[in-house]
Amino acid sequence: MTLGKIIELLNCQIISGAVDLQLDIKSAKASDLMSDVLTYSGPGKLLMTGLTNIQVIRTCDIAGICVVIFVRGKKPLIETVELAKTCKIAILATRLSMFEACGMLYSNGLKGVTITAPAQ
């Protein structure tokens, strides 16, 4: 799914970053847990989260995630926006809840990544 299509489906506001509307997003993840985000690998990655602090961007930078969407209309802190610029991570915001945003993308064909839980 192109980033342009995602922006349209979620009615996203572009907060910062050079947004390449043609960028092919192959999968998405929704999480508010940083360690969980770090288990997400694969190409063309997008994260939806309710957290807006600076560590979200650091975590995405380490995990190789290039687009972050803040749900529930949350606005990021200034330092979050600044770091996103430095790391070349595009940040967007949607008014939809996490559940609605996920459902919207999933029902339009975007898939998640199946992660096998570590053996107990």
Binding site: D32, L33, M34, S35, D36, V37, L38, T39, T49, L51, N53, Q55, V56, T59, P118
Partner: peptide, 15 residues
């Protein structure tokens, strides 16, 4: 509140 504390850090490092 910052998104830490899943208790997955050390297992992730080991993995």
């Amino acid at each position: 509140e910052m998104g830490f504390g899943a208790g997955m850090g050390l297992p992730n490092i080991k993995k």
